[in-house]
Amino acid sequence: MAVTESHTYSTFYIDKFYFGILTTEVTELTKGSEVTPVPLAPPAIYGLINLRGQIATAIDMRQCLGITTSQYSEGSITLFFSRNASLFGLLVDSISDIVEVDEMNFEQPPTNLPEAAKKLIHGVYKLPDKLLFVLDPARLIDGIEV
């Protein structure tokens, strides 16, 4: 029997899509953070958030994924992670469970995925009832053109 690695993912919804990022990457979740918009910033940047005295860059996941059909609501949740000593926040619609997945169920993203999403989505886990898209925060940040 093949040795399978398992990981846990923090999962969340943006629009109707179900995403997860490695739980170890996530430092904090807050609800309804006040986001200060930054005029003339790259479109993927939603604004800046004050997380207890540290300034985090809020990333507009809808923009990154090319979702235009819906807007963020008042109760949006920010999922914080840090990279190279900078703090970032992902704006998401709602938070779901922490999910343990089996590497066996991992698959590369389908080739017909839209270009915008292909850069960000590392792969997909086939869960019994739905698909979990895996986001790679590092790629997400690097993919934003400064």
């Binding site: 006040e34 790259p42 940047i45 004050n50 300034i55 900078s86």
Partner: peptide, 26 residues
Amino acid sequence: KSAGPLLKGTTIYSGATILGDGFVAM
């Protein structure tokens, strides 16, 4: 405070600060 690496290219800002009410201002 630094406005973060993603705003490096937005040259009209030199940084950000946090106001007394907790909001960020550029």
